[in-house]
Design a protein around this nucleic acid. Structure first.
Lengths: 405, 405
DNA sequence: CTGTTAGCGCCTTCAG
DNA sequence: CTGAAGGCGCTAACAG
């Protein structure tokens, strides 16, 4: 029962052929075929011995792994875990092993993982996560202007070394080597552009790359139509009769947040219901961020009135905002309507149902995988969301009948 | 900029030492030291060249990878993604790369991944997920009775070859070999006990194993005190004055579900408020399962009355149940109180707040990692939950004052 | 303490 | 079309 790993040469011997032939029979070598009966014999022997190739050995011989790197900001976040599910599915289909990295929002870790992937010669890498502006100027518009500012360099430099000491256990002593827990973790100061450089290097080394969210340089990307989705949402809401909006806009420099905010306010401006600058609140991209920003809004409103509708740039924030409303003894949607973005599946049943923009996150993950593997036609795809109206934004009684699709 | 991977020998040359010395200096070999100045020189050279070891090569040479396999039922499920976050954190601390497998509930895939991990010589593997009874009899009680059944042969045999054609891109042609997308995917009929056997084989081959949830055989496990947690919950609820309970009990044969159900009903029986068999409803372990079971309950109750409180064996089901209540035009908690289990973070803000049993899922993931790495004292840990009372289960007016802690 | 020498398992030119 | 011979980058006995 405790069988030592079966090697290819064993299979070869068992089949009565040479190692080379066995190899060719099993992986269908590029430089053509093996006689049918031999191939049969080999396959049969492989099956009998329950042979399965050693990925490491293959990787060494071929100079390329069978691994697909997936790096996300936080795998516990439903946004990312849904994307991960899509990636996992597509990767399995492609016969790849996915290696997961959850950076916990540290751009230093993110960089380290990209470099690790290169070193490890991963087949491809997928980077999902809200790039911060300072990373690089290369938006879709003018690719100049590094867009200075943006003091928040992120958690950065995260725990240099981190050592990870041997620990009490009886695991082998030789554990984390010098630079183990993050290759060149030392040189990992979040230099602007470092990530792009690392990604380019990875690509030049023959790896596939796909970004999810916003582009970096000219790298392949599955873009999410954040601005368009938010604009659609704004129009729908306007159509329901809302006229006074506030936006919980996420942190400065967060591109996804900024795009959603811009799309929303832009569309409203066009409709003649511009959002006042004061009604655009900066806050963390999290549940707590939504909660506290909404709290501020309510506090501020104690003198006057509350906006009719608050748009939080993601569902998790929106749910936090709804909690703040409740905690203040007010009601959604009676005192204030709330809308979000993403349509996180786990939040489908919050009450009242949250109006939002549905992004097919799992598909996004699958798409990104195809892209990274070079199996897609284009090198750039945009996924457009779909407005989903629910009870958190009922039609306003005073609504002028308008389009509502 | 497009630097080909730096090898150890380059570092050695740069530092003016032999390959072996460089290796020793960098990984701190078991058979002790290197002179301080030489080590310095090597490290310095490594840094200058931005060297970082090739995991595949190391794996080959050492006969052991630096990979930690994590297999979950569905990474999109918040329960698993939270555990995954803990695993990711602990793994990084230990300098390990985590390879993720989302089985989408196919036990054939689960088995295939365990075998892959063995073949790949992963350092350790963590299996999270509700084992189904039929897997094996080896609970804590009698370890006999293979408990046959288990017809679902799963997707199995998945697309032999899968070819994955060269594709348009410039990715290498040689792609998934014959048995690539799942080692011995052929022999993967969900034979009862096969998983345990595979796990044992993996362990005997020197890999670390940790289960999350329920034990299999005598393998290391982080158990979750499902029965105790549910019993605590039952007592707390009873203390609040509830007397008539129903349970959305999950599917037959699902151990986690069964344990929670048993703990809950057992405690109530002791308290003199036994749950009637009719009030224990079998249903899928999902949101929709909770929704439809609650729907049944409501339908059935149209003649008579509804139970005072419905306990769904996990939060996601509970949320589905709440949705069903709302959709029936009823209210939680006015018409019926609802409680869940897990305390999924993303659901913290549902309204009314859901009473539940908090399981520190991320910690569970970290613990499992320690365990799998042999860094824990014991080989078996139990994580106990904590009852969290929220608005979905307010005290009953007619309550007899009782303990409530 | 350091350097030399074999491989780990597999793929891939080279001959045959 | 098949077999024999190198080598991928690194570690782990062996000498020196």
């Amino acid at each position: 029962m405790s069988d030592a790993p079966v090697t290819l040469s064993q299979v070869a011997r068992e089949a009565g052929v040479s190692l080379a032939t066995a190899s060719r029979a099993i992986n269908g070598s590029a430089t053509r075929s093996v006689r049918e009966d031999l191939r049969e014999r080999v396959l049969e022997a492989a099956r009998r011995l329950a042979y399965s190739p050693d990925p490491s050995a293959q990787a060494m011989a071929r100079g390329r792994t069978t691994a697909l790197g997936l790096v996300v900001h936080d795998i516990a976040d439903p946004y990312f875990s849904t994307i991960a599910a899509g990636v996992a599915r597509a990767a399995e289909r492609a016969g790849l092993i996915v290696t997961l990295a959850s950076t916990e929002h540290s751009s230093a870790r993110e960089l380290a993982f990209v470099e690790l992937a290169r070193r490890q010669r991963s087949r491809a890498i997928i980077l999902a996560g809200g790039r911060l502006e300072p990373e690089d100027g290369g938006a879709s518009a003018g690719s100049e202007a590094p867009a200075g500012g943006g003091a928040s360099a992120g958690g950065a430099s995260g725990e240099p070394g981190a050592d990870g000491g041997p620990g009490p256990g009886e695991t082998g002593p030789a554990d984390p080597p010098v630079g183990a827990d993050g290759p060149s973790a030392d040189g990992a100061r979040p230099v602007p552009g470092a990530l792009e450089a690392a990604l380019n290097a990875f690509q030049e080394a023959g790896g596939g790359v796909a970004l999810v969210g916003q582009p970096i340089g000219g790298l392949p990307v599955v873009e999410i139509a954040n601005a368009d989705g938010a604009a659609d949402l704004a129009r729908a809401l306007h159509g329901l009769g809302y006229r006074w909006f506030a936006v919980l806009a996420g942190p400065d420099g967060h591109r996804t947040a900024a795009d959603r905010t811009a799309g929303f306010t832009g569309a409203l401006a066009e409709l003649g219901s511009p959002v006042a600058p004061d009604d655009v609140l900066t806050c963390p991209f999290t549940r707590d961020g939504g909660y506290s920003a909404m709290g501020d809004l309510i506090k501020r409103a104690e003198a006057g009135r509350l906006p009719e509708l608050v748009f939080a740039v993601n569902d998790v924030m929106a749910v936090g905002a709804m909690a703040a409303v409740r905690d203040a003894g007010l009601s959604v949607p009676d005192d204030v309507a709330v809308a979000g973005f993403d349509d996180i599946h786990t939040l489908r049943d919050v009450s009242p149902g949250l109006t939002t923009v549905r992004i097919p996150l799992a598909e996004v993950g699958e798409l990104a995988t195809e892209l990274a593997l070079g199996r897609a036609e284009r090198t750039r795809t945009t996924v457009r969301g779909e407005v989903v109206l629910r009870d958190s934004t009922p039609p306003r009684p005073s609504a002028t009948p308008a389009d509502q699709s």
